[in-house]
Write a protein that binds this DNA or RNA. Sequence first.
DNA 1: TCGATACTTCGGCCGGCGTCGAAGTGTCCG
DNA 2: CGGACACTTCGACGCCGGCCGAAGTATCGA
Lengths: 249, 249
Amino acid sequence: MTENVRERTAAADEVRAEGRTVAALAGLLADATRAAFCLALLDGRAWTANELARHAGVAASTATAHLNTLTEGGLLAEERQGRHRYVRLAGPEAAELVEHLAALAPRQHTPAPRTLSATTRRSAMARARTCYDHLAGLLGVTITEAMAERGLLDWERGPALTPAGVDWLGALGITLPPGSKRPAVRPCLDFTERRPHLAGTVGAAICRHAFEAGWIVRIGTTRAVSLTPEGRQALASRLDLRHHAILAP
Amino acid sequence: MTENVRERTAAADEVRAEGRTVAALAGLLADATRAAFCLALLDGRAWTANELARHAGVAASTATAHLNTLTEGGLLAEERQGRHRYVRLAGPEAAELVEHLAALAPRQHTPAPRTLSATTRRSAMARARTCYDHLAGLLGVTITEAMAERGLLDWERGPALTPAGVDWLGALGITLPPGSKRPAVRPCLDFTERRPHLAGTVGAAICRHAFEAGWIVRIGTTRAVSLTPEGRQALASRLDLRHHAILAP
DNA sequence: TCGATACTTCGGCCGGCGTCGAAGTGTCCG
DNA sequence: CGGACACTTCGACGCCGGCCGAAGTATCGA
């Protein structure tokens, strides 16, 4: 009735409006199926609608509806090719949001896989995998920690690349893009290791280089990757790794 | 029927289980009221249930239910004092998640405030406010960019504190905690300025120091803060700011 | 001891959303 | 040209969850 009351409700409306935009974004990931889609897409590649449907165990029509929701919400980008609908995460920000949620979500019990293939699949993922555009798993944290030990990374005042780190990347043929808005170095909590691995433009560049130089290859169509003999050799020489677990076949 | 099919559905169950944990976390923020609560709590302080209820414009009983949900989900920590229920964000990780969502949520139209008090409230927030445990608004980005210009921060290879930055903090009586898991320096996208301001342990330390040294004081019970004459003086001398907008009364 | 205040519990209402299968459209390939 | 395949649209079903007000409990202050 009075100005006071009217003003109070106007303020509340404003508060709720802000809340609604955040809630809308969170709502995109507040469904088990949509979250499963995004976790799968965290491998950084494009999937077809059917692949995602089978992956998450839902009908194709259900997948269609969810993909519409996710793309309209701006979390996914899509590309149509013939009768296929390819979708991928819209960009690094979207991937970071999914990572963030996954890292904070309570650790699940994982009641010990019962089949042999499930066991090997899981151990391959824990050993080495991609996390959107950078490396994760034992491989990811090993590289990260080896870089820190060799003085290529500074975690105390950073995270940041040291001058030695810039040289080390240069020797691989990787140069830093100047004035990028995205942080060069960003910590990303590893699911399986529970220690941070390297993300940001540098993490992405190292991952890209590892693929291009044949250090790693994908295992089938999963997020898991396999370290090649060339990769072992390169890690051992470039990071002074000796008798490290990641070097075992 | 066959082992193949059984294995495939087992894998889908596993996928859905992972999806469900992420969805549960996202679901906490997928409601306009709960999101509004968390955005309010982003000021880093503890609010009572009633304050939040009035802030978001819902009944007290509704607020109770939401606070139960949020605390059980691990996003909020609560403290009971007599007949009051104080809640705050559970920690830096929770605050970062809320920040992340808020930064990525589509910019809202904000149809020009109609009342005088709404206008002044908004401009005070845009000028200087806290963002969980660090400074935001024009003040936050001004400090951040001035530090970068003076060579105290390195955005190219970092973000990271330079040796000069360590000295500068030392002159304020701030020392870096060694071997912290939390990054010393982290960029946090500013709502109003759309440029990053400084977060991480260093951002928090600077904010704490600004309060303790009387550089800033809170405006009422909002997130907004006001720069004191001592604060103006300190910024001008310590960061070489001359005729900068933030120094105007 | 009594009233005021802060929060909680309960019951009931209602809307929204995720799910599916069946039928429809578009694309590829033989 | 016709069959196979990928995706989409539609309708129906069911359930979950947010909202409120009223009544109940706990705490504070006089």
